[in-house]
């Protein structure tokens, strides 16, 4: 007797969590929208242009790859949203006056060198957005360290002319430059109040200012069960402890709160270091990873030659991830015994 209904026979589980890769990527992307809007508020609508262009640059390799493959994939790699996320993240680390062509190139390099050459999503060793950022920093060091003071409503619609400069021509206007709080710390100068830092009304990369907002966006993702939450927790605790400790030893060093709210720390901790692919695959490994990033950030900022160390700290630890994985494999259930236990 065979059935009259056409039954599908598969194996369990027959229930799945709603989260799939695309959902996760889009959730992370959406959670960054407030950060992008705040950046536009402080630095003008030009920021949105930078974001759009960088995303376009990041999406291009994925799109081309799907088009050029002999057998196109069932689902375009663009659908999973990771390229868009990479582009957005990269844009948020760029200075607000960056020429658009550079931003585009950065996005392109981020995905092409940071991901595609490794074999696509899941196979890359380094955070693609930071690869893009590191490339730009190496190629155009002057531009990447030209900052503008944060503005407000009055210059919301002024788009800096530097944005439209053409490749290989020096743009005449160099805009107004301002020192970031971290370079003030490094190279002398008045430190801003940390509360201004936390709100983000200071010179800096488009999305790196506004520590409180980034913190809230990150917490939203944690409630959704998306982030590897141990990493930002470890980074933040370590940076605060190290900063506060140094400050206690010698008050001429900036304190923990300053370190937490300045520069790319929050964006790095919540959005860059937590990139699933390039961070450890074990729970203990995530703690180790976070603590080491935190230490490295403070060391670079305080003792190193650069004002900011978040990017290098994360890239360096990305390289250490396989090693961390290897030494932090979890013990399996049933290998810890209590006294009085017959084995």
């Amino acid at each position: 007797m065979s059935s009259t209904v056409n039954l599908l026979v598969t194996t369990s589980p027959f229930l799945k969590d709603r989260a799939n890769t695309a959902w996760i990527m889009w959730q992370v992307t959406l959670s960054l929208v407030p950060v992008a809007l705040l950046a536009a508020w402080y630095f003008g609508l030009g920021v949105l242009l930078i974001i759009a262009v960088t995303i376009a640059g990041a999406a291009l390799p994925e799109w081309l790859q799907a088009r050029m493959q002999a057998k196109p994939p069932v689902v375009s790699p663009l659908r999973d949203g990771s390229a868009v996320l990479t582009g957005l993240l990269l844009a948020l680390t760029l200075p607000p006056g960056i020429p658009l062509w550079m931003a585009f190139l950065g996005g392109l390099v981020a995905v092409l060198i940071g991901k595609t050459v490794f074999g696509g999503i899941g196979a890359n060793a380094f955070n693609p957005a930071l690869v893009g950022r590191a490339f730009l920093q190496a190629a155009f060091p002057a531009t990447l360290t030209t900052w503008r003071p944060a503005g407000g409503l009055s210059d919301l619609t002024t788009i800096p002319a530097t944005l439209f400069s053409v490749p290989f021509l020096r743009s005449g206007v160099d805009g107004v430059t301002a020192a970031t709080p971290l370079s003030q710390m490094k190279f002398g100068g008045e430190l801003p109040e940390w509360i201004d830092l936390a709100k983000g009304a200071v010179p800096g990369s488009t999305g790196e200012t506004g520590a409180i907002l980034i913190l809230l966006c990150g917490l939203y993702l944690v409630t959704r069960g998306i982030l590897k939450w141990r990493i930002p927790v470890a980074i933040i605790c370590t940076v605060w402890l190290a900063g506060t400790g140094l400050h206690a030893l010698d008050p001429s060093y900036a304190d923990g709160w300053f370190h937490l709210s300045a520069g790319g720390l929050m964006l790095g901790a919540w959005y860059m270091a937590t990139d699933p692919v390039t961070s450890p695959m074990t729970q203990a490994g995530c703690w180790v990873f976070g603590v080491l990033i935190g230490l490295l950030v403070v060391v670079i900022r305080v003792f190193g030659g650069l004002p900011e160390g978040v990017m290098y700290a994360i890239l360096f630890l990305n390289a250490c991830t396989p090693l961390i994985n290897r030494v932090t494999q979890p013990r399996t259930f049933g290998t810890r015994f209590k006294p009085g236990f017959t084995r």
């Binding site: 599908l8 027959f14 890769t21 689902v75 999503i121 899941g122 590897k228 699933p276 692919v277 074990t282």
Partner: peptide, 17 residues
């Protein structure tokens, strides 16, 4: 209710761990 079976690359998200 039939679950999606299209397989994607592991993104090492730690959720299974």
């Amino acid at each position: 209710e039939v679950v999606e079976r299209q397989e994607y690359a592991c993104i090492k998200c730690l959720r299974c761990v």
